[in-house]
Simulated scan of single mutants.
Amino acid sequence: MSLEEEVETIDAIFPDSLKEIGPRRYTLSIPDRRALVQLSFPSAYPDILPEVQSTEHVDKGLVEDILAQVYMEGEVVLFSLIQEVQEVTEEISEEAEEPETHQDHDETSAEAKAAIFAGWTLSDPVVDRKSIFVAHAFTVHSAAEAEAKINHLKEDKKIARATHNITAYRILRDAEKGIYAQDCDDDGEDAAGGRLLHLLSLTGVENVVVVVARWYGGIKLGPDRFKHINAAARDALEKGGYLKK
């Protein structure tokens, strides 16, 4: 995803949150917060981390720490940055706490988040009528491991707040007989889990669990929601190298 495409996506999710102030330079208004973050994007972005040039109503060092934590080389970062700054500023009162307290709080949060997402491959966000879909893929070798990874992922506040976390896993049990351990969960999105598992079977992926988080935007999408769930899942599987050539 290019910077221009990412900006269009963020505008669809958080209208008027980005203001272009120069070539590859934007002021980001954190939704529902007073915080402003000025960012500069190098020409090699997303292969190189963007630079936090200045901030208002939020500590610059805090934003830099959050950005460094959520950034993954080659992956766009604005959506995750906005979500994390929202969460941290919700819990921290800058007027009441010293900068050292901010740093300690963020380090603890960053360590917990790093542990939760370690090893997961994330898709680019799929956005339609303010609904957001993000898929996560992880290598597993047993049903128990798959369930444990799903539960661990849901410890993240953003994932826990998703309207639905649709899951499916497919694990090779006997190569000679072609036996697989597999299961799925709709999490309230009727028939979505079965469709996701069907995608895993069609693509022939093995030893992987996929979690597609959906944040409902207030407008029903009808059958399009299944298309977006599959698109996000396929993107995560491709990025993670699970799809067979």
Rank of each mutant, 00 (worst) to 15 (best):
V88T: 07
A68E: 13
E75H: 05
D65V: 03
D47V: 13
Q86S: 12
V77Q: 02
Y71H: 15
I48L: 15
Y71Q: 07
V58F: 09
I82Y: 06
Q83S: 05
Q83R: 05
A44W: 10
F41C: 00
E51Q: 12
P50A: 15
L49C: 03
G61F: 10
G74T: 02
G74V: 04
I66S: 02
D65L: 09
Y45N: 00
Q69N: 13
P50S: 10
I82N: 02
Q53A: 12
Q53S: 13
E73L: 09
V88R: 06
E56M: 06
L49N: 14
E64P: 13
V85F: 01
V70M: 08
E84W: 05
E56R: 14
D47M: 15
D47T: 13
L81G: 01
D59T: 14
E75F: 05
L49S: 14
T55H: 10
G61C: 15
V70F: 04
F41V: 00
V76H: 01
Q86I: 09
L49W: 13
E75K: 05
I82D: 02
Q86E: 12
E84D: 14
L81A: 00
Q69H: 11
V76D: 01
P46Q: 13
A44N: 11
L78I: 12
E87T: 06
V76W: 00
V70E: 01
E51N: 11
L81N: 05
V77F: 05
D59F: 15
L78K: 04
